[in-house]
Write a protein that binds this DNA or RNA. Structure first.
Lengths: 156, 156
DNA sequence: GTATTTGCAAAAGTTTTGCACATCC
DNA sequence: GGATGTGCAAAACTTTTGCAAATAC
């Protein structure tokens, strides 16, 4: 990847700046984690990020990955995603915008879904005095390549 | 609790019957787990279920709770909920109907939200060839008793 | 009577913590 | 130079597995 002045590169530098202005120091390890996250698309486990980031900074420890991911989440630069396996997944936030996930029950693929139709639910929360500031939604089912024949899996 | 012919009690017996007809045996342990789940409302961790069910069947092991919960989920009688702490939560499904959760970021309380406005998202998935059969949604924010003064927490 | 279930102990897997050393600003 | 960050090893936590004894049907 050429480190030109592309939009992706500007976003990368912006995230570094955000981290720095939040009082964190910029180290080679954190650059590596951030770059790995940016290259990997959505919903990666810490171990995956570690493997990818090690190709950039080989001495990187898994512990540092966890600590960096926690910092990114704390500063609002990344967010967690929880699927059905017991592990926490991470992804960068794209600043303002916001997406959900289509998780295929057959092949496990995870695709982004940009639509967000939660307005009605948010107001249902409000009506009960609950101020909604965040939400998490995952849609499960079968992707185009995995349309099942039977009807074994029902809606949850 | 009086084991009368109330609606709750009929639902309890119905769940036992479902388990049995799915080929599982009905043991005192499974009765205790099921009853504990029914009494506890939504989104309880396995450890909580264990503690509650032990008041009914004191010798109950945690392992049995895990195995029973897994069986209930497999048979569609219960479902899992994943919040931000790393543990899996369980709740009984109320047969057909379907609810989401309002999770207070301040006090941690979890309330049921019966509304479901996912139609638009489901069709957005379909448009991409993805057949949505299940979803999971959690709304986070502040409950009536915990309305914050500042604006520290933004939407995710 | 036989297959299923249980409980214990131990294992597995992910995530966190303590601490000495290194590094950023 | 001093606070912050890193890596290792070990701990903490939830969840799973192996196995002999107990139990449902």
């Amino acid at each position: 990847m050429v480190r030109d002045g592309s939009a992706a590169e500007r976003r990368f530098e912006g995230r570094l700046r955000s981290l720095r202005s939040a009082g964190h120091r910029i180290t080679a390890q954190r650059r590596a984690v951030l770059r790995a996250l940016a290259m990997m698309g959505c919903a990666c486990g810490a171990e995956d990020v570690h493997a990818r980031a090690r190709r950039i900074y080989p001495r990187l420890g898994l512990v540092t990955v966890y600590r960096t991911l926690a910092a990114l989440v704390r500063e609002g630069l990344a967010q967690t995603v929880q699927l059905d396996d017991g592990r926490v997944r991470y992804e960068l936030r794209d600043d303002g915008r916001h997406h959900h996930h289509l998780v295929c029950l057959s092949c496990g693929s995870i695709a982004r879904l940009e639509a967000c139709a939660l307005g009605r639910l948010q107001s249902a929360g409000l009506r009960r005095g609950f101020r909604v500031t965040a939400h998490r939604l995952e849609l499960f089912g079968y992707c185009e390549d995995c349309q099942p024949s039977g009807g074994r899996h029902e809606a949850r």
